[in-house]
Design a protein around this nucleic acid. Sequence first.
DNA 1: CGAACGACCTGTTCGC
DNA 2: TGCGAACAGGTCGTTC
Length: 261
Amino acid sequence: MPELPEVETLRRQLFQEIRGKRIRTLAVYDAKLGPAPNLEGRKINSIRRQGKFLEIVLDDGSVLRLHLRMTGRLFRCDVAEDTNVPAHTRFRLFLEDCEIIGVDPRRFATLTLEQPNRHGPNLPDLLKNPDPSAFQQAARKRRLAAKVFLLDQAVFPGMGNIYACEVLHSAGVDPRRPASEVTREEWETIGREMRRILNLAVRCRGTSVSDWRDLHGNAGEFQHHLRVYGREGMPCPRCGSGVERIVLGGRGTWFCATCQK
DNA sequence: CGAACGACCTGTTCGC
DNA sequence: TGCGAACAGGTCGTTC
């Protein structure tokens, strides 16, 4: 569920709430997540985002790395009211004066502690400078649908199903086109629309199309800006013809066959 | 190497 | 109202 804008929303809110604070303990309640590492006394130096990964950097250089997958959520609350935690609580990070609760009904989310100096390659940040040349280069031998290619996390870190549909609609590119046949000019448009849409979605604190909530339990606002995602049969805001739904790469894909070429 | 598909889980919605 | 099927924001491993 959470895509780049939702994860970035959490990163910014976590920065406000927990940066510089000391950890009392990390409690894990789902065996799938593995044993809870001992984090007692560690201080939180910073919060980073790599694609859809949230990284909590600790004062000994180790990194608590979290991926929310489909249904993972984080909520901040006062430790005082801890008798009734939400359903599907999978872990609780206790701090000096509050706690962060990890909730995940489907149990796809992951939580790992990485040791210092083991950072992978530095990924591009789609919020800042999408690089059309890099996109076209990566698409060279890819015959798969452009929409499926946009979900390749090595090329588009953080891109997810909702925003892939919206970016291709705004760029006027048919999601079924083979990725390798998208032109240089179209990659430039896609990069521009990607940056615009993702930044707007961050300002909206994400898309609450069903049940996404931010760190404080509030819904996002970007669902009011959706033009095609989830809007089968409704008029395309640009040309008025009906939005269609197809399946690409096993995922629902919404688009306008009239203005996406 | 690239691509298709099932698996991982559970909750919600839809059709009969 | 009840019940089963379909579907859901994401990735990974296996197979072709």
